[in-house]
Design a protein around this nucleic acid. Structure first.
Lengths: 347, 347
DNA sequence: CTGTTAGCGCATTCAG
DNA sequence: CTGAATGCGCTAACAG
């Protein structure tokens, strides 16, 4: 029953060995107050000898927040979120913190588990990807004292700080590009229903369409990937190929979908942009690495992570005011788009 | 200076409101002992009314481990690790824990930061990707009482539990496939130096080569991606195209490299497998999603995560014995490999 | 089944 | 600059 594994040294042991008092150690280790050089080196020696590791639980119990921030997302397999996470992580590390990535898969049970866990940990704050942000799990987290920043539009989250990109504009630009190239038979490829961001992008796309072509938005067809797996995206590509008449251009809700569509088209023997033009959204790394580099609307993922994390720290430091940082999407024209074939134009 | 943000309710407040004692609350909330139905409902009501959120720091301070496990990896942009993380996460959630993903980038400062942070948090354990595993940051973590499992070979980590896949065998199989197809001009494409896993894979590949062709291993050329970024992988592909004579087949250390190589070849106007056969390693999702589905050696990433996390919990529960779980790699032949062109055979 | 009590490791008083 | 005392929120051990 003996547990030899656990580290036993406490700050008291250090004090004893170094021959100084608790307070001095604490002051030295936390830089609260200066201590004499003699004490300092004695403490260093004792810490090293004992292998002393402060117990952050004790600090937290006294009312401090833990040195951790959460990042709540629906899907870790989307490189977009990973890149945002890298930005968050860099800021967190600089502040001596860690980030707990919470992959909810949109499952309420998992959302609840994570909100509760982060709350009990007394995390400093969290970056959440959200739609309503009034959801109960987020309220719980907020009530625990965590500083929340949502990756989403300010208008839907008036009471919280936000980091956003103008989705409507991005969709508008993507569609303008396609229309400008001469495309008039376009499909929108979306993801699982209920995603606000995607809705905004398509809203912008429809606006550009009717403004610039004078045609009705019902001329724009739509296909959705019914899930967040490779298989569902491939299926969406197949669905789109069953459309009659075939589209000449495909505007996707994100790059992961766009890349899957491109792959499927290639597998089916079609060429891009010869047979179809394709536009993505996000500009993940893989977009430029594709066999035919993807035309897409860029969101500055890493910078968004940086910004969100900085707001978390500012809020946690006592800043009262909501902050709303917004970035502009930028169309990145690469090689998956071109004018439609002449015979296609002659509908 | 008033901080209204933080949640103030403690277990004492709950006790007062529910009119029961501290001990009863604790017993009820933790399921340690049964309590009367009357008490239970009174407690539930009080918890809800007060919005009480237990402070895990207090529990940890009393000697318990925190409900978190770490996952230390060199590069979050490799989908391989993300998939392993998903496995770890599923087990963690089931046990009411969270996982802290630590992206070190191979930087000793970051490794140190994370080892220290996880130690101070008193995490239950950690899954580490490691080479030597005797590295100082891992020793620190172990000394904090965390249960460690390494994703790596048992022979290099005799003192720790491991989850591994037979890299040598995987490399052997990949090479056998290529040799069997008739390829005799093959390049090995590796990653940043010092990766033990890659060394093993190539070791197996060389063994298959000499056994099956009777040729010397110096006939096998090698090119390396000098970093873990898209750009370095593209550069490796370009380097390979500068070889004279050109290879007929390319054996890559992992899928991320292989996919980048395929993309670059396509961008340069070459066809796969027409001009070059390509083999990857890992079998990440993108492998089958590529325009031409990638032939690769599969490692069961998700299952590896599951296994590693289970060992962490077993160890933390007091199991003394080291565990070594190993998986078999399996060659997944898809469409990037075929016999070399005849003219290429006639060197 | 319930109530009481005694610390867990640390940072922050406050006196020297 | 140092030392001693206090209490943070909680659980385990024990007494009723």
């Amino acid at each position: 029953m003996v547990d030899e594994r656990a580290q036993k040294a406490t700050i008291r042991d250090v004090a004893r060995l170094a021959n100084v008092s608790l307070g001095t150690i604490s002051n030295y280790l936390n830089g609260t107050k200066g201590v004499s050089a003699r004490s300092a080196s004695a403490i260093d020696a004792a810490v090293a000898e004992l292998g002393f590791i402060p117990n952050s639980g004790a600090r937290v119990m006294r009312g401090a927040r833990s040195h951790a921030i959460g990042f709540i997302i629906p899907d870790t397999t989307n490189p977009f979120f990973i890149e945002v996470a890298r930005g968050i992580e860099d800021v967190a590390i600089e502040a001596g913190h860690v980030v707990v990535t919470c992959n909810t898969l949109g499952d309420p049970d998992r959302e609840d588990h994570y909100a509760r866990s982060l709350s009990e940990m007394r995390v400093l704050g969290a970056v959440v990807t959200g739609m309503t942000a009034t959801e109960s799990h987020l309220r719980l987290l907020a009530s625990s004292g965590a500083a929340l920043v949502v990756l989403g539009t300010p208008d839907l989250n008036p009471t919280m700080s936000t980091v956003s990109v103008d989705d409507r504009q991005g969709g508008y630009d993507a569609m303008s590009h396609l229309v400008g190239l001469g495309h008039r038979r376009i499909v929108l490829v979306g993801g699982p229903a209920g995603d606000v961001q995607i809705a905004r992008r398509f809203e912008g796309a429809r606006a550009a369409w009717s403004e610039q072509t004078g045609l009705g938005v019902d001329e724009l067809r739509r296909v959705d990937a019914l899930g967040s797996t490779p298989a569902t995206r491939m299926a969406a590509a197949d669905a789109l190929l069953a459309l009659d008449p075939l589209p000449t251009a495909i505007l996707c809700a994100n790059d992961v979908i766009a890349l899957a569509v491109c792959a499927r088209l290639a597998q089916r023997g079609f060429t891009v942009p010869g047979d179809f033009s394709v536009v993505g959204y996000d500009d993940i790394d893989d977009a430029q690495l594709a066999p035919v580099p993807l035309t897409t609307v860029r969101q500055p993922q890493f910078e968004m992570g940086l910004a969100a994390a900085r707001i978390v720290f500012a809020l946690a430091a006592g800043s009262e005011e909501l902050q709303h940082v917004s970035f502009e999407p930028t169309l990145s024209v690469r090689s998956t788009t071109s004018a439609p074939r002449t015979h296609a134009l002659a509908v």
